[in-house]
Design a protein around this nucleic acid. Structure first.
Lengths: 115, 115
DNA sequence: GTGAGTGTACGACTTTTCTCGTACTGTACG
DNA sequence: CGTACAGTACGAGAAAAGTCGTACACTCAC
């Protein structure tokens, strides 16, 4: 299955901020930033989410806002951060957010990221 | 009247991102960033918002998330960006957002900001 | 005191977001 | 083929966000 992703130029900061304003989605971004490409189930497991359909909703939000790539690969689909596009579009934003999210989270603040 | 503002340490990145994920509030932040302290009516006028009670709602969101100071002064109250706190808490975030918002906005992208 | 200006509080309403269960599509493997 | 796995689509329900009108509180100038 092929998803529709916005072009780099179509990415809007409102959308990005709004997408990342949700704790769950922010965690997803942190995970993708530290762990690279992941499939959906892996993320569900790590974050402790039980309902797949809930995450399908969040994938859509992150994808539509231009934050992640979601690409089918066999029977899974692979999620990755659109770091190049985001860095080109909004320099420093992603780094500031990921770093900020780490300092906000008592676990991440000490450990960095425990894969 | 005295409003309750979160301490610097209480500011959460979720809250900030969520607050700034709204186009209207993002415009407010841009305005305060470029124009310094403003009163509410001034902002209403510049942004073309008609209902005062609508903005009262947005002031609360921005204030509660730690993005702005709102201080009574005579019969007005003055709004200003909590730049020091935000920069200390999430280095580079505010700059990235304000800059990004400018490039997103066709007017601001060319002119910078027409006060 | 009266009148005008600045902004909040509250209630109502509409729209959006979030979450979940169920049914379904498509891939891999025997 | 059948079975298991990975994830979407759809519908429903609850909660949150956004908008507005009206009424009120407070300050300033007269």
């Amino acid at each position: 299955m092929n998803y529709r992703h916005p072009e780099r130029d179509q990415i809007r900061i409102d959308g990005v901020l709004s997408a990342l304003g949700n704790p769950l989605r922010l965690s997803v971004v942190r995970l993708l930033d530290s762990g690279g490409e992941q499939n959906c189930s892996r993320v569900l497991n790590v974050l402790g989410v039980t309902a797949k359909s809930t995450m399908t909703h969040h994938w859509r939000v992150l994808r539509d806002s231009g934050v992640i790539w979601q690409l089918a690969s066999g029977r899974e689909n692979l999620l990755s951060l659109r770091r190049e596009d985001l860095d080109a579009r909004f320099p420093g934003l992603l780094d500031a957010i990921v770093t900020g999210a780490r300092t906000d989270d008592p676990v991440g603040a000490r450990a960095g990221s425990g894969g």
